[in-house]
Design a protein around this nucleic acid. Structure first.
Length: 224
DNA sequence: CCAGTGATTTCCT
DNA sequence: GGAAATCACTGGA
């Protein structure tokens, strides 16, 4: 008896059929190692929605006071303590969902928060999911926006990003991560502010925040 | 451009 | 009781 093959993510656009999911081993590492390598990877839904990841943050379980998992498992963060390569979706501020890729080994509570992405396919569905968006940069430039654009919610908490069992996956189109990603402190936290665990593609239009930080942290000079 | 604020679940003190 | 891995809207400069 042959093992059942994993569900194949099928897209409507034939040019992207050669995208392949990131293997389990990609995630089975420390999130500070995984996070910068997730830049330029592609978040995919089987309805044709796709976006290039341009901003991420690492959260490292018991060694990270800012992580949901710092004080151990709760009903909300249970997925974070499961095996790597699964999607941890949490609810925050009474309004917003956000998606993470679980990293490390089961039991460690480590993950990478998907903070922002550049939509590259299925934009009509994203505009439908985010009626307030007026420009492409409004669709997924922030963890709450990204989750809304992709319909990430409690039903997708625990989905396997490697097999795509619930129609959501992280894949590569061959684009490497940036050679010199911007690095800085994580956004919206009040503990472990000194951990420089946020990475993003430098000078990218779809990164979250009122100002985009350049590689050396300097402000943009409009005269140049 | 920027600061202030409401929305309102989950978890901690 | 209050902060939290946030966002959109308001109003002033």
């Amino acid at each position: 008896m042959q093992p059942k093959p994993p569900r194949v993510i099928v897209l409507q656009e034939p040019t992207i059929k050669h995208w392949k999911p990131l293997p389990r081993g990609f995630y089975r590492r420390h999130p500070t190692e995984v996070a910068p390598e997730l830049l330029n990877k592609i978040l995919l839904r089987d309805d044709g929605r796709a976006a290039r990841i341009v901003e991420v943050e690492a959260y490292a379980g018991g060694e990270d006071p800012a992580a949901h998992s710092f004080r151990g498992p709760t009903p909300r963060n249970a997925t974070m303590f499961g095996p790597p390569g699964h999607l941890y979706v949490y609810f925050i501020y009474g309004m917003h969902w956000a998606g993470n890729a679980v990293c490390g080994d089961a039991g460690e509570g480590m993950a990478v928060l998907l903070r922002a992405a550049e939509p590259i396919h299925g934009l009509e569905l994203m505009y439908q999911a985010r009626a307030v968006a007026r420009r492409d940069q409004d669709l997924a430039s922030g963890p709450g926006k990204l989750a809304q654009a992709f319909g990430l919610n409690r039903q997708l908490d625990g989905a396997d990003l490697v097999t795509g069992d619930r129609g959501v996956a992280l894949v590569s189109d061959g684009t490497p991560p940036p050679d010199n990603p911007a690095v800085g402190p994580r956004i919206g936290i009040s503990r472990a502010m000194d951990f420089p665990w946020r990475w993003h593609v430098p000078d990218h239009d779809h990164v979250s925040g009122p100002r985009r930080q350049s590689r050396n942290g300097a402000k943009h000079d409009p005269a140049r």
